[in-house]
Design a protein around this nucleic acid. Structure first.
Lengths: 138, 138
DNA sequence: CCCAATTAATTAGCATGCTTACTATATCAA
DNA sequence: TTGATATAGTAAGCATGCTAATTAATTGGG
């Protein structure tokens, strides 16, 4: 059954990809998950934890953990929102800003490896198919 | 950049898929990861932990943990190999055998959801592309 | 104005899965 | 036969990420 094979291939890709990222990030003293959060902040600084939870597809307590450890490492800073004391706004520190480029290099090299040998046409096709699948999961 | 979009889509799919499986498996009193191991055993019983580690793409200590908890739940049994006292061979228990069908139903419904709306032609294409990507990760 | 309901984040506790270091057993070469 | 090396699995300790329950702050209807 082709559907089963696709499920299995996706599983293999997920697992190996995650491990590969994890290994690469270790050289930057980052753990997996932290890279996503930092890069999200590099797009838009001062985002709330709820917004991070939404856009990174993980639960609020997970974000709280990640934010806490990144704060401990000095890569981000947290400030209470002026208008709403329930809200934390999260900012990249100077140290955090410096790590964005290396992280993106890791992403680049990982995606190059993953997509090696695919033609431009195949990439377009693949993107379309993945988009359909991603929509199916909403 | 299309490569970046593909990386992001894959990430979204991985994360949501995993969560969705996890939620479905909860109804069977299973945790994610356990399903893979059980179904591997249903293909070939009496496999060693090393072989499981190899075929499930995870590290030996991870297998040891999963095997231990499945043994505690009475879903599998472990026996020392007769010829090599270092080796554990892992077998499905009767209770374990009974859970295979429900697990495969979960997999089926999950993959149906994921691949909904894709034509036969697109499935073939997708499989080919995923295979290339999986090979790139070796 | 006040109390109920909602929202943002945290705490506690758990399971996965990893790395590093270890134990036990087996193999192989001198 | 014995001592070095390799292999199978385990133990300890850690980080991710989850759920359920909780705290703190805000909002909205009566």
């Amino acid at each position: 059954m082709i559907e089963n094979e696709i499920r299995e291939l996706l599983e293999v890709i997920s697992v190996k990809k995650r491990r590969s990222y994890s290994n690469q990030l270790r050289a930057l003293d980052l753990h997996i998950g932290q890279d996503q959060l930092l890069c999200r902040l590099s797009q838009q600084d001062g985002v709330t934890q709820s917004q991070l939870s939404e856009s990174l597809n993980c639960e609020p307590p997970t974000i709280a953990n990640t934010v806490k450890s990144l704060e401990t490492y000095g890569l981000i800073e947290r400030k209470r929102d002026v208008n709403d004391a329930r809200v934390n706004r999260v900012y990249l520190s100077e140290k955090g800003k410096k790590i964005i480029a290396p992280v993106k290099e890791v992403w680049q090299s990982e995606q190059d490896k993953l997509l090696e040998g695919l033609t431009e046409e195949e990439l377009i096709l693949l993107k379309g198919l993945l988009k359909k699948m991603a929509n199916n999961l909403n």
